[in-house]
């Protein structure tokens, strides 16, 4: 106790308390904040679609907003609350549900990406040690994949629409990266930023980041094809299937590319660079200046 009382009056005591408090808050926050797990590539194992299951899932999860016949709903003034799903196609369903955007929790400017609900969560961890647990997880995953396929088939049966692209069409290794980069800068970068870090849009909307590897090539393709939320549609006459694959190749390869210059500073350009220059550069040099000027020569006499 006595030592603490002495320390309290030291010049650095205030800083130490603030630092300790910040550290404590950080640890507590890290403990409480919801963890965002990464989803694995959800490439659907195709099975014979079970339309009855799809309709049941639709009634359970979607019908409350989109209407019992997927016709969409309107409020008392005739303004649409949610759109009709007739003709949106399997690709749209796959994108919205596999990214967790649908079923939506609460309507806002834009539906955020989140972990899909358990019935559609195809990214369940299956590498458990315990064989029983693993079997259960694998079963659940297979069921989620089947559910998603059934739901897609049911919506597609209502009025057609774009199909989920085959795996060969989205393979990032087969695309022309240089062409993809050019197309990305012309068509995508104005919202998603140079390397797909995402960006703010008007009215509280935003372009989500493409730089996390839970954004699968299939999802990128589907997004271009169906134009979810604020995104425009890039149909096959605007960007051919090959060009879409080139863009996917660019996005995936650029996010896997290491930064040759050291830490990428978030790859968001001069804002983080300026911040680093001031905080690290000037910060370190101020510390050095304090240290140098605090040094007193021993022998020199002053007049």
């Amino acid at each position: 106790m006595k030592r603490f009382t002495a320390w309290r009056r030291r010049p650095w005591a205030g800083y130490a308390v603030v630092l300790a408090a910040l550290a404590a808050i950080g640890v507590i926050y890290a403990g409480f904040s919801p963890r965002t797990d990464r989803a694995e590539a959800a490439n659907s194992a195709q099975a014979a679609p079970d339309l009855a299951n799809g309709k049941a899932l639709f009634n359970q999860n979607c019908a409350s907003c989109h209407g019992l016949n997927a016709e969409g709903t309107k409020d008392a003034e005739g303004k649409p609350i949610s759109p009709s799903l007739i003709g949106v196609g399997a690709a749209s369903v796959d994108f919205q549900v596999s990214t967790g955007r649908m079923p939506a929790m609460n309507p806002g400017a834009q539906m955020p990406r989140k972990r899909p609900i358990p019935a559609f969560d195809t990214s369940i961890k299956t590498d458990h040690e315990d064989p029983e647990e693993r079997a259960a997880a694998e079963k659940q995953k297979a069921q989620a994949e089947k559910n998603l396929a059934d739901l897609r088939a049911y919506i597609a049966s209502l009025g057609g629409g774009p199909e989920v692209p085959p795996a060969s069409a989205v393979d990032p290794k087969k695309g022309d990266v240089a062409l993809g980069g050019k197309l990305f800068r012309t068509n995508c970068a104005q919202c998603h930023s140079f390397t797909g870090q995402g960006g703010a849009l008007t009215g509280g909307k935003y372009a989500p980041p493409l730089s996390n590897d839970d954004v699968t090539p299939t999802q990128i393709y589907e997004a271009m094809l169906t134009g979810p939320q604020a995104m425009p549609v890039f149909n096959d006459t605007t960007l051919t299937a090959e060009e879409k694959q080139a863009i996917i190749a660019y996005i995936v390869q650029i996010r896997e590319e290491p930064n040759p210059g050291g830490n990428g500073l978030g790859r968001i350009g001069p804002v983080s660079e300026g911040l680093a220059g001031w905080l690290i550069g000037i910060g370190l040099l101020v510390l050095a200046a304090m240290w140098i000027t605090a040094k007193k020569p021993k022998k020199l006499k002053k007049s």
């Binding site: 800068r185 012309t186 970068a189 104005q190 919202c191 998603h192 930023s193 140079f194 870090q197 960006g199 703010a200 372009a207 968001i268 350009g269 001069p270 804002v271 660079e273 300026g274 220059g277 001031w278």
Partner: peptide, 12 residues
């Protein structure tokens, strides 16, 4: 001239 990116900032 036909392309642009979001988050285009100059140096500080």
């Amino acid at each position: 001239p036909g392309a642009i990116s979001s988050a285009s900032q100059p140096d500080w």
